[in-house]
């Protein structure tokens, strides 16, 4: 086994050029463009109507044609999503720390939270509309409600998984619960917290768009449902593309924040050596 592996190595080594073009950073673009090309070709060759499945070229045409409206609605959705998400970050972090702090609070709140999370958020929107009217507020609150849970669970998990030995070492020194939380629990839960932000931001988009679709007169959700009722299918797809773009941008931002703040948890790739 070892002979067959090692023999070609000395001869093979000089063959590989010293400077090889690094394709890796380009891969996301190549795949994305590839997807659009296949899509375009598929639609053109099969002759499917634009009202059923518009080709990407037709969708980009729609984006340019309706750019003013798309821009306004995109900014509205980005705004409701971000505000709801920030509320979820603050609330989720606070509740996560509270739950992780005390076994009693954990035992009491956990089943309630699971039950609450199981409720489809689209069913909550009508109630929010009764309370706040249609528009921005229900969209923000729906984004908040849906993004909140993963943050709480992750922060609480980080606190709950402190090694008992670490706790013993510190408690034997006379550490109070507060000391252990500040020195160990909170730093420890940060990778979980920042990891959960990536999930939470995507969910926040789901929440705000649901609410906008059901009860709003601005935002991408509203724009898409209005376009659909006018049978403007390319515009519906344009809305989807804008959502994907916003989602990717926010996800990338969260991933960047995660990497910057908790480098020690990603040691093998970023900080080794």
């Amino acid at each position: 086994m070892s002979a067959s592996n090692t023999t070609p190595a000395p001869t093979a080594l000089p063959v590989t050029p010293a400077k090889k073009f690094d394709w890796l950073p380009l891969m996301p673009w190549i795949y994305t463009i590839g997807l659009f090309l296949i899509w375009e070709l598929g639609v053109r060759l099969s002759g499917v109507s634009h009202t059923i499945m518009p080709a990407p070229s037709r969708i980009f045409e729609a984006i340019i044609q309706y750019w003013g409206a798309i821009q306004r609605h995109s900014i509205q959705t980005l705004y409701t999503t971000s505000v709801g998400f920030l509320m979820a970050v603050v609330g989720g972090l606070a509740l996560g720390l509270l739950i992780g702090w005390s076994r009693m609070i954990y035992a009491g709140l956990y089943p309630l939270m699971v039950g609450f999370n199981a409720i489809p958020k689209v069913a909550v929107v009508p109630i929010l509309v009764i309370w706040f009217g249609i528009g921005t507020v229900p969209a923000i609150l729906t984004a908040f409600l849906i993004a909140f849970f993963p943050i709480v669970v992750n922060v609480a998990t980080g606190l709950a998984t402190i090694e008992p030995e670490t706790e013993d070492v510190l408690r034997a020194l006379g550490a109070k619960k507060m000391d252990i939380m500040l020195k160990v629990g909170i730093p420890r839960s940060m990778p979980y917290f920042f990891g959960s932000l990536k999930i939470a931001i995507t969910l926040a988009f789901v929440g705000s768009v649901i609410s906008e679709t059901v009860a709003a007169n601005s935002g991408l959700g509203y724009m898409m449902s209005a376009a659909q009722s006018q049978f403007n299918v390319p515009l519906v797809w344009a809305g989807l593309i804008m959502l994907a773009v916003e989602g990717i941008a926010m996800y990338a931002l969260m991933a960047w924040i995660e990497k910057r703040t908790t480098g020690w948890a990603h040691r093998s790739q970023t900080m080794a050596g």
Partner: peptide, 13 residues
């Protein structure tokens, strides 16, 4: 008292 266990429990951050 100082304590040390089999698991070194160094804080990675």
């Amino acid at each position: 008292v100082g304590m040390a266990f089999q698991n070194p429990t160094m804080l990675p951050w």
